[in-house]
């Protein structure tokens, strides 16, 4: 059986998710035994256009991105979004609530007309995405699990429960008891509660749980005396696109 051909593509992102894979030093040779990597700008100079599995990093934020991602989708049998930007728009989407012309001017100055851009979107807003590996940066252990599942013909599974589950398993104190707004109760787990375990609130980088109770925040705000702005601020870090979609649906 020939090895499946795999490609990595970067869109609007810091490319950290791709780079982090080069940190899988102990496993890289094993992975190369199992797959042929034909396109991986950060690691190899070949640019093969024949691949079955495409890992996508970064958000879709220019007309050119849209064109490229459609081309990739037409070629790949399986498309996997890697990291927050590809999964939910991520940090890039913070600019979606700013004046877009001003954003272009800040970045490109007088050349702003040479670089058309659109609002930063998740890959799944543009083309069909088969699986996601969430997080900022994506988790290498999860990457290995997903790849292992794909290669053994299983459906890759990522947790659908919240970060609280992993946080409780580590017996952390709840940050809400310190008056700190944490995205943990509504953020998809899989990070082993890395931020709360190290004393920081959850940023929500893995996106929201699929089974979200949208109106439950009211009671939490009352119990811990928090304002709606404090809660919204936390959402804007990684989940701007979610907030915008919700607010639009109320208009």
């Amino acid at each position: 059986m020939s090895k499946p051909k795999v490609a990595f593509f970067d869109f609007t992102s810091c490319e950290g998710c791709q780079l982090s894979k080069l940190n899988l030093e102990n496993d890289l040779l094993d992975i190369l035994e199992l797959v042929d990597i034909v396109n991986f700008r950060e690691a190899i100079s070949d640019h093969g256009e024949d691949y079955e599995i495409a890992f996508i990093e970064g958000s879709i934020s220019t007309p050119h991105c849209v064109e490229r991602i459609h081309k990739i989708r037409r070629q790949a049998k399986i498309v996997i979004a890697l990291g927050s930007c590809a999964h939910i728009g991520g940090i890039n989407a913070i600019r979606n609530n700013m004046d877009q012309d001003e954003v272009r001017e800040t970045v490109y100055g007088n050349d702003k007309y040479l670089f058309p851009s659109i609002k930063a979107q998740a890959v799944s807003d543009v083309v069909k995405v088969d699986y996601v590996i969430p997080g900022c940066p994506m988790d290498n252990q999860e990457f290995k699990r997903v790849l292992s599942a794909l290669l053994t013909g299983k459906i890759p599974e990522i947790p659908e429960y919240s970060v609280c589950v992993e946080c409780k398993a580590k017996e952390n104190e709840c940050l809400y008891d310190y008056g700190i707004v944490c995205m943990g109760p509504i953020t998809r787990a899989g990070c082993r509660a890395a931020c709360p375990t190290n004393g920081h609130y959850c940023y929500g980088c893995r996106g929201l749980v699929p089974d979200l109770n949208k109106n439950a925040a009211k009671d939490v705000m009352e119990k811990y005396k928090l304002s709606i702005d404090q809660i919204k601020k936390r959402f804007y870090m990684f989940n701007t696109n979610y907030v915008n979609m919700e607010e639009k649906s109320y208009e």
């Binding site: 429960y161 919240s162 609280c164 589950v165 943990g184 109760p185 509504i186 109770n213 439950a216 009671d219």
Partner: peptide, 14 residues
């Protein structure tokens, strides 16, 4: 009760 619940599972875990 369910209107308030996030289904985070804390009640079961602890």
């Amino acid at each position: 009760t369910s209107k308030k619940c996030y289904s985070c599972g804390t009640c079961n875990l602890v």
